[in-house]
Amino acid sequence: MWRYIGRKLFVYLLTFIVAVTINWMIPRFMPGDPVRSMLSRASVGDPEALERMTNYYNEVFGLDQPLHQQYLSFWSGLFKGDLGISTMLYPQPVLDIILRAVPYTLGLLIPAILLSWIIGNRFGAFAARSKVLDNTVLPVGYILTATPYMWLALLLAWSLGIVAGVFPVAGGYSYSLRPDFSWMFISSLLTHWFLPFLSLFIVALGGWAIGMRNMIIYELEADYANYLQALGAPRRLVRRYAFRNAMLPQITGLAVQLGTIIAGALLTEIVFNYPGLGTLILNSLNSRDFFLLQGIFLFVVVGVLIANFIIDIVYVLIDPRTRVQMTGGSS
């Protein structure tokens, strides 16, 4: 078990190193010297500030240093939590800007992923046993999974936000409020959160429901289900087994889908101008803030890796087969 986790950790570590290296390479080896053009485009009115910035970046990129030196200092900066300074919001450190946005993104993603997974699975399993439900859930589910996140987000923003006027369609909270612990602020947070959450939730829900429905039907046809039924086991018992066994591929599915869902979340944020990482990516792209972009990508990569690792561990804990194989026999 620990050896397995150790091996997994090693693979994730390797992935992380590769990701960081690619991240480091992009602004340096991209044609057209993006760093220079970034600096020249940076909208810093004050020439003295521009001067300071140019010096700073020259130093950071250490253009006079050999490449391996640059690479090593990049890593040491990383460990000190130093991701550089943003040009877009000069002179704020990239890390601070990202840390401000991360809670919004996580606040959208985690509830959307968990709730859609849990409810979708329950619903799909439930649909598998009723013809009427099955005939409605299936087509609706297919439509939902086929819906691009962006499109549903726009639809919701338009219908519930603009036409019905029930929910606000932009920002993380009302611009007239300052962040504090008042009821007003929290309710403003919640109403702004709701629509982006809902669009993520709905699209993901359809996929999980369909997956689960198909898996359950497959499991109910499996040999062990037939055997139990031949011995007169009640539907209840067979369904319980089927549900549990159908869950396992759904957990793997979660790991596979994670990337899509995160990409969806970033797009959805942009539609709702929600102050998370997605919107931040768009803004930093617009102002060619490569340091910020680099930092965000690092965060996203680390986030995906951590989430995958958690799913790996959960899977091992839940599926006796992998557990047995790892401990090498009965124990």
Binding site: Y224, Y227, A230, D319, R321
Partner: peptide, 19 residues
Amino acid sequence: RYHEISLIPQYAMSALNPT
């Protein structure tokens, strides 16, 4: 079933719930 009539199926190898 089971009490009076029982079956060893053709697929006995996969007749047990794997989990």
